[in-house]
Amino acid sequence: MSASTGVAGEDASSAVALVNTRHLQSGQPADLLADPARAAGWLAERGLLPRGTALPDPDTARLVALREAVRGLFAARAGQRVPAVDDVTLLNAALAAAPVVPALTWDEAGPRRREHTLAGAGPCTVAIARLARDALRVLTDPAGPEPAPCGAHGCVRWFLRTHAARQWCSDRCGDRVRAARHYARHRGTA
Rank of each mutant, 00 (worst) to 15 (best):
A152T: 11
L160M: 08
A40C: 00
V85N: 08
G120H: 04
G110R: 02
D57K: 10
A78F: 09
C155Q: 02
P36C: 05
T162F: 07
N92R: 14
Q80P: 06
V19D: 10
W168A: 04
L55N: 01
V7R: 07
L104I: 13
A190S: 13
L18N: 09
R81C: 09
Y183V: 13
A76K: 05
D59G: 15
R22V: 15
V19W: 14
R137K: 12
D134A: 10
M1F: 08
A76G: 06
P99V: 01
R112K: 13
V7G: 06
A8Y: 08
A127H: 01
P123A: 02
A15D: 05
D134H: 05
A39I: 06
P50S: 03
V100F: 13
S14Y: 07
H116V: 15
S170I: 01
L63P: 00
G6R: 06
A39Y: 00
L160T: 07
L24A: 13
E108G: 09
D107P: 00
S170K: 03
S170H: 02
V88W: 10
T60D: 05
T162K: 06
A190W: 07
V7Y: 05
R157T: 11
A44S: 05
V156L: 12
R114K: 10
H116C: 09
A135S: 11
Q80W: 14
P142E: 02
R71A: 15
L55W: 00
S4D: 15
I128R: 12
W168V: 00
D59C: 07
P149L: 11
V70Q: 11
R176L: 15
A76C: 08
D86C: 05
L66N: 07
R62T: 11
R187T: 11
G41Q: 03
T189A: 13
G27C: 05
G6A: 03
A179R: 14
A69F: 11
P29Y: 11
L24D: 12
A34K: 12
P147Y: 03
G79Q: 09
T189W: 04
H23F: 12
R113W: 12
V85C: 08
E146N: 09
V100M: 15
V85P: 06
P123L: 01
D175V: 12
R161S: 08
V126Y: 00
V88F: 09
P36N: 02
V101F: 06
L48Y: 04
A190Q: 11
R187M: 07
S2M: 04
R172N: 10
M1S: 13
A76W: 00
H116A: 13
V88P: 09
R38S: 15
L43I: 00
R181T: 14
A103I: 11
L49A: 01
S4P: 03
G47K: 02
P111T: 12
A65M: 06
A69S: 15
A109H: 14
G122V: 08
L63Y: 00
P50M: 01
A132L: 11
R185K: 09
P149T: 13
H182L: 08
R38N: 09
A96T: 13
A69C: 10
R185L: 13
